[in-house]
């Protein structure tokens, strides 16, 4: 059962990747003749036809689709039309910076959002609960570009404590990571609270209480593991928002990551770079959701039990 579960999920992930790549191929093809974008306006038809033949645009569509795939599988994502570097190398050059920013922001929002959500659910209706929930609404209503600008005005221009742009030192990371993590932390706190409340009203929580389990044991051994499954699911889905937020945050703080590269590539219509980033992000999303599914399979005894029958959940 566990194996079958894994197989289904892996096939699904592969299917999604196939859909994304096909989608990119189709959009690329309907976006118009690349020779219009790449060649000067006064290029003659002979020159245009030469390049069409060179890039394989005169071949049938299915043939182009196959060679598109074989290029991707050998790591060839095309050449950036702006500086003639392989698009994939440009993307890989920037990826670590975005991983650093996104990872820090994710860690920050987990560290803030999870405990606050758990506490708010446990002391539901208390003033702490109300304070956390009201702050959360403010947190996710705040556009991250505006939060970033307010932080720059306060901490960079007025107080002069922290740098407003660049990525050279750890101090450069503070404002962008806070900007990117805040809305995510707020959403996480809210979702954690409702997932916990859902679990806390389950009969097994009453059973645990009547058995005389301590408060800490009931929260951490019973409620949190059960609530972690929906929380992990939502985390997987929300990673996409984090990536979108990273694009905006990198623009605000001139953070030299993938987001700024993407904004620039879109502005000048550097399609090779855009498609490389798009496919990388899709792969990240698919991998994240596969991890979430694996966690789900590991955490939920109903999935796991097929393999270890009779084992205690």
């Amino acid at each position: 059962m566990m194996l079958q579960f894994l197989a289904t999920k892996t096939i699904r992930a592969a299917l999604t990747m196939w859909l994304v790549i096909t989608f990119v191929f189709i959009v690329l093809r309907i976006s118009g003749d690349p020779t219009d974008i790449l060649l000067p306006d006064d290029a003659s038809d002979a020159v245009r036809n030469f390049y069409r033949a060179k890039w394989g645009l005169d071949r049938p569509l299915w043939d182009q689709y196959l060679s598109y795939w074989s290029a991707l599988l050998t790591g060839d994502f095309g050449i950036s039309l702006r500086n003639n570097l392989p698009a994939w190398d440009m993307v890989m050059d920037r990826a670590p910076k975005t991983l650093l920013l996104g990872g820090t922001a994710l860690g920050f929002s987990l560290a803030i959002g999870l405990p606050l959500g758990i506490l708010a659910a446990w002391w539901r209706g208390s003033s702490l609960d109300r304070a956390v929930m009201t702050t959360a609404v403010f947190g996710f209503s705040m556009p991250n570009f505006f939060l970033g600008i307010l932080l720059i005005l306060t901490f960079s221009l007025h107080l002069r404590w922290l740098p407003s742009s660049g990525s050279e030192t750890a101090a450069h990371l503070i404002l962008p990571a806070f900007t990117l993590g805040t809305a995510f932390a707020a959403q996480l706190a809210r979702f954690t609270r409702s997932a916990m409340i859902d679990v806390l009203t389950k009969p097994y929580m009453t059973t645990a209480k009547s058995k005389g389990a301590s408060e800490a044991r009931r929260v951490f051994a019973h409620a949190v593991p059960n609530a972690s499954v929906p929380i992990a699911t939502i985390l997987g889905l929300k990673v996409g928002e984090l990536i979108g937020g990273a694009v905006v945050t990198e623009t605000v703080f001139a953070w030299p990551g993938l987001g700024r590269l993407l904004v620039h590539a879109v502005a000048v219509r550097d399609l090779a770079v855009v498609q490389a980033i798009l496919i990388l992000i899709a792969a990240t999303m698919v991998a994240t959701n596969l991890l979430v599914d694996l966690y789900y399979g590991w955490a939920d005894p109903r999935v796991r039990v097929g393999r270890t029958k009779g084992a205690r959940a």
Partner: peptide, 21 residues
């Protein structure tokens, strides 16, 4: 629905704006 939920729409929107103008 699954496809839409799986891709960050903000990124897809950027790509479409790049491709289609």
């Amino acid at each position: 629905v699954d496809f839409q939920a799986a891709m960050p729409w903000f990124i897809v929107a950027m790509a479409v704006l790049a491709f289609l103008g």
